[in-house]
Deep mutational scan, measured.
Amino acid sequence: HDTTVHINGLRIEVHGASEEILKWIEEAARRGVEAEEIKRWVEEALK
């Protein structure tokens, strides 16, 4: 999927993410993980 995830006011563009990654992002956000940190993880995961 190409999608934009909104976390604590930060937009994260996610290209080619699976449902699993999207669920993981939402879970991390709920746990209060910094949005910048999530963004870094997602970029690494999608390389």
Rank of each mutant, 00 (worst) to 15 (best):
H1N: 13
H1D: 13
H1G: 11
H1M: 12
H1T: 13
D2S: 15
D2L: 15
D2P: 15
D2E: 14
D2F: 14
D2H: 15
D2R: 15
D2Q: 15
T3C: 08
T4I: 15
T4A: 15
T4M: 03
V5G: 04
V5Y: 00
V5P: 03
V5W: 00
V5L: 08
V5N: 07
V5K: 07
V5H: 05
H6R: 09
H6A: 07
H6M: 09
H6K: 10
I7Y: 00
I7Q: 03
I7E: 06
I7G: 05
I7K: 01
I7S: 01
I7D: 09
I7A: 03
I7N: 05
N8D: 15
N8R: 02
G9F: 00
G9Q: 04
G9Y: 00
G9R: 01
L10P: 04
L10Y: 01
R11W: 12
R11F: 14
R11T: 15
R11N: 15
R11V: 15
I12H: 01
I12L: 04
I12G: 01
I12S: 02
I12F: 04
I12A: 01
I12P: 01
I12E: 02
E13T: 11
E13F: 03
E13Q: 10
E13S: 13
E13H: 09
E13P: 09
E13Y: 03
E13I: 13
E13W: 01
V14Q: 02
V14I: 14
V14A: 05
V14R: 00
V14D: 03
V14H: 02
V14W: 03
V14T: 08
V14M: 07
H15I: 13
H15C: 09
H15R: 13
H15G: 14
H15M: 11
H15P: 10
G16W: 06
G16T: 05
G16A: 07
G16D: 07
G16I: 05
G16S: 07
A17L: 10
A17G: 08
A17N: 04
A17S: 07
A17C: 04
A17R: 04
A17Y: 04
A17M: 09
S18D: 08
S18P: 09
S18F: 07
S18T: 14
S18E: 04
E19P: 14
E19N: 11
E19K: 12
E19Y: 09
E20P: 05
E20H: 10
E20G: 08
E20S: 09
I21S: 01
I21W: 04
I21L: 14
I21T: 04
L22S: 01
L22T: 02
L22W: 06
L22D: 02
L22Y: 06
L22R: 06
L22V: 06
L22F: 08
L22P: 01
K23S: 10
K23I: 11
W24T: 03
W24K: 07
W24D: 01
I25G: 01
I25M: 07
I25Q: 00
I25C: 02
E26S: 04
E26P: 01
E27S: 07
E27H: 06
E27D: 14
E27G: 04
E27K: 05
E27P: 00
E27M: 04
E27R: 06
E27V: 06
E27Q: 11
E27T: 06
A28H: 04
A28R: 01
A28C: 06
A28D: 02
A29I: 15
A29T: 10
A29E: 08
A29Q: 12
A29C: 09
A29Y: 11
R30I: 13
R30N: 13
R30Y: 07
R31Y: 05
R31H: 10
G32Q: 05
G32D: 03
G32L: 05
V33I: 12
V33N: 02
V33E: 06
V33G: 02
V33M: 12
V33W: 12
E34W: 07
E34C: 07
E34G: 12
A35V: 13
A35S: 07
A35I: 14
A35D: 05
A35R: 02
E36H: 12
E36N: 10
E36A: 12
E36S: 11
E36L: 10
E36C: 14
I38V: 04
I38F: 02
K39I: 14
K39A: 11
K39Q: 13
K39W: 08
K39L: 13
R40C: 05
R40I: 08
R40N: 09
W41Y: 14
W41T: 08
W41L: 10
W41H: 12
V42L: 10
V42I: 10
E43F: 02
E43V: 03
E43A: 03
E43Y: 02
E43S: 03
E43D: 13
E44N: 14
E44Y: 03
E44K: 10
E44Q: 13
E44F: 02
A45D: 02
A45V: 11
A45H: 11
A45G: 05
A45T: 12
L46T: 07
L46K: 03
L46D: 02
L46Q: 06
K47H: 11
K47M: 11
K47T: 11
K47P: 06
